[in-house]
Structure formats: C-alpha cells, structure tokens
Design a protein around this nucleic acid. Structure first.
Lengths: 112, 112
DNA sequence: ATTTTATGAACCATAAAAAGGCCATATAAT
DNA sequence: ATTATATGGCCTTTTTATGGTTCATAAAAT
C-alpha cells in the first residue's frame, strides 16, 4: 500500500523536467497548436498538458514522451544524441550481461 | 472523471522508454548496485524500479529522472546535448513569447 | 554440493493522479 | 471599444499507479 509518500526530487530532475516542459510549450506555440488540440492528439487532458509544460514531475513518462514526440522533440534523436551513443554501447553489451549483480563482500561499494 | 482511457503510445515513445530503462539497468550494474539499493536511494520501491528498467510508460517521470540521475545518466548533459542546445534557444525566446496562441483563421493549420 | 542473495512476477489496498467541468483572466481578433 | 478564443486554477469524481507483500527462480558465494 502506498503509505503516504512524500517524495523529494533532486534539483537536476526538477530542472530537467522544467526545461523539457518549456521546450514542449515552445514547440507547441511554433506549430500553432492550442493546448486543447495537442492534448487531444496525445490522448490526454488539457490539465495534464498544463502540468507537463510546467515540468510537474508526477506526470507519467508516457504522456510526456507522447507530447514531446508529437511536437517534434527528439529525446533520442538520430545518431548525434549522447543518449543514443550511450545506448549503442548498452545494447551491444546487454546480451552478455548477467541478470543479477553481487558484490564481493558486504562492504558498501559507494564509489560515486 | 477519467472515463476508462485505454491509452496508446507511439512506437517512438515505447522505444525511448525501453532504451532509457536498459541504460539505467546497465548503469546500475556497472555501479554494482542492487535493485533494492538503487530503489532506496531514489526513494522508490523495488517494484517501481523494475518497471522503470523495463521501460514501463506509466511510471512517473520524476522517479525515472531520479533514478537516471543517481546512476549517472545525464538526460540534459552539459553543452553537447541536443536537448540543451534546443533549450538554450528556448530560454532566450521564452521571455518575449505571448502566453497564448491564435491562428489567423479557423482553417486547420495542419502543416506537419 | 548448500546457502545466501538478487531478481522477476504477481497480487492487493490505497494514496495519488487524471479527466472533466467550471470560472476568471488574459490575449487576440474584429 | 466588443467579441471570441486560450489559458490558468480550482474542484469533484473516477481511475490508476504505487508500495508492500509474497513466492519462485536465478545467480553468486561458501
């Protein structure tokens, strides 16, 4: 049972969401879409789009990605994107990775 | 009242979430963190982290961002990132943007 | 081999998010 | 100026995602 969680977010996460929201809003305006129109296309409510554009961290990621995609924002664009670069790396290694991880000892490996 | 929505997601959104999840998992393994440990640090449950790593689109974006941040994934990294590039553009323009958008006529401006 | 620990998947109760409506304000068009 | 449309909050109801639990399997340590 979700027991009254008071979630906290790092500043980085907050900024990331706020910036993404601002980017979405700008893209929407450039395309001359009203909030209602974009919300309809994304299959969400207008209030939801408002929260996304404000950078609300509680929005579901699927809704954010959908909206971003519709207005033409590429989270993982072609080949220049740093994330895509990292991911290429990932997918190559993924097949040979063990499914679980165990540290050598119980010593906390807190190296970062 | 939410009227029993069966939300659909674009393939792009699904892939984006799946890739991000895979990236998180790899980063977690590289840092030798167990799912429980990472979940604890992010302030989420282990089940939630599982869903994130699987690319579940219904997870809240704040949780995904937190986890990604903790394992060192930069969504909007320094200055090379394409998103940051776009955002710089955005923030400059933001101040002078109108708050609402109106099209010239009622003709649907569907140019994309 | 045995033991210990990590993961994956399902279930359930409930806190929380989302939709939809409404209204006030703001902006754009006339 | 007036009119029309867009946005931003707030509120209530309904839906859903989340945390917690359990269990089975998988992998690592011993």
């Amino acid at each position: 049972m979700p027991k009254s969680i008071a979630r906290t977010y790092s500043q980085y996460s907050r900024e990331a969401a706020a910036l993404l929201g601002a980017l979405i809003r700008e893209a929407r305006n450039e395309r001359k879409l009203t909030a209602q129109e974009l919300a309809d296309r994304a299959g969400i409510s207008r209030g939801m789009l408002q929260r996304i554009e404000k950078g609300n961290l509680k929005c579901e990621i699927g809704a954010v990605f959908e909206v971003a995609t519709i207005v033409g924002i590429k989270l993982f664009d072609a080949d220049g994107s740093d994330l895509v670069k990292q991911l290429r790396h990932t997918k190559e290694k993924l097949a040979l990775m063990p499914k679980s991880v165990r540290r050598k000892s119980k010593k906390v490996n807190d190296d970062f």
